[in-house]
Design a protein around this nucleic acid. Structure first.
Lengths: 263, 263
DNA sequence: CAGTGGTCTAGACCACTGG
DNA sequence: CAGTGGTCTAGACCACTGC
């Protein structure tokens, strides 16, 4: 690998920084290795759930020491992109078969552990092609009027409708997604995206507000008109930090709450 | 340092695990070092904002290599207990003089950057001694009826009352705290707790709900009765994971939103 | 220039997994 | 038993800070 300030004879196949910048930022080797591994993830060289090559193998490939590869993998594991398992290997993280069923859902029952109410019942209310409005386009880095898929569904826990979600997806990467596909898939929606459309959600940002139940949402959630709901707007990103999903959720918080840890 | 499964001749002054357990869990050296550093933090051997000894110094003290100390510090830095500064040293994290003024406040203006509205105006509405109710006692690991301090205040941004907070503190560690002290202190409340009462908040858990403005809260926040508010119940913990503060906040979300990053 | 944290290496050994 | 990740060490050198 080429260290930026100190060229060496051993160079990896990919050059990270050609050094044309005046203020050439110092980039340690392990970050360059991290970038190379990230590239392989983006290009699906290894798929979610699969093992990546061993540390020694990667060290050989990149012409660096095992310790340097280790530090790169450490960071990727800390960002939940990779999962280390001692004695077995390092695996590409996946939304399927994870210990937690909904890794991005922070709504938990007031009493009992998450998932103790059994699996959520999912009812697809609608799923159609549409054109992106101005704000949807901005969220998904599209242009107003671009084709999008729009779905609406209700999640119920123990028979009580608790979450109403409107989901917008760019049409191109999700070509072929139908209401049946959404309804029949058992498991996290993000797992479906991985297996069927090769789209892995890595990170998300949420904006949370308190809003009254209106515009028919009170009917779907079976609450009185004007009942305060948690409004959760989520934008989910893939490896390249490209926004690939806009989700507007309305959560009932009479038996559940949004849980967050600050540190 | 004594490695648990492999006793050595070089032992630190403090024994971590006497090895009486049948299933003696393997504890790597760096975790034991981390525990020793944590102990020093708990005992205020180094105060918030101060530098801790250099890695080499700590390595000498604990009879381990610099790399082992480094890994211990790495974890403490990742948990925001320590802050590394290249060329200067490693410092005990503090709520004062941190880049972000309110590290535990996730309410941000809809447009503009956090803090762009200028400093928040704080009005102490009340501050009194009281007896812990059942739920307050449970949150603070006290007994019902134990002495607590209770304060209520309103935070305003750009002249608009936006946050109403009720705060409960165990009376013993915060002896001498008055409304004047709270009102006159310029800076984060948690910084006051550090300097005046030697209580450092390290971590917090929040439960978030949507609730209508009632019980006079609508008056203090200047909104219509029944307006949906974000209800944020926070329990803040010190080094020992002992709960030291219960805070019930009510946030207006017409010009601000609660921001959260999922990964 | 000395002192600090940050990077990189090479090698030894340990803990865990599965055949 | 071989292969994986996990720990620990010792040493060299780099980047940043402040005197």
């Amino acid at each position: 690998m080429a260290q930026i300030p100190v060229p060496s004879t051993e160079n990896a196949s990919t050059s990270i920084d050609s050094g044309t910048s005046m203020t050439a930022a110092f980039s340690p080797l392990y970050l360059q290795i991290k970038g190379l591994i990230l590239n392989s993830l983006r290009l699906s060289e290894w798929k979610p759930g699969e093992a990546i090559p061993s540390e020694i193998e990667l060290a050989t490939r990149f012409h660096v020491s095992q310790g340097t590869v280790r530090k790169a993998i450490d960071e990727l594991a800390a960002e939940n992109l990779l999962v280390r398992r001692q004695g077995k290997g390092t695996f590409v993280a996946t939304h399927a078969a994870q210990h937690v069923q909904f890794r991005f859902l922070k709504l938990v029952p007031d009493s009992g552990t998450p998932g103790s109410e059994g699996p959520a019942q999912r009812d697809i209310v609608a799923c159609r092609r549409a054109r992106a409005s101005a704000d949807v386009a901005r969220a998904l880095a599209l242009r107003t009027g671009d084709a999008v898929l729009q779905a609406r569904r209700v999640l119920s826990f123990a028979g009580t409708p608790t979450i109403l979600e409107d989901i917008w997806l760019p049409a191109a990467p999700f070509k072929g997604l139908t209401a049946e596909r959404l309804a029949n898939y058992h498991g996290p929606t993000y797992a479906l995206f991985e297996t069927e459309f090769n789209v892995r959600m890595v990170r998300a940002e949420e904006k949370i507000r308190a809003e009254p139940a209106t515009d028919g949402r009170e009917i779907l959630l079976k609450v009185a008109h004007g009942t305060p709901l948690l409004s959760v707007e989520r934008i989910a990103y893939t490896y390249k930090d490209i926004p690939m999903e806009l989700r507007r959720g309305y959560y009932r918080t009479d038996t559940h709450h949004y849980h967050n840890t600050l540190s």
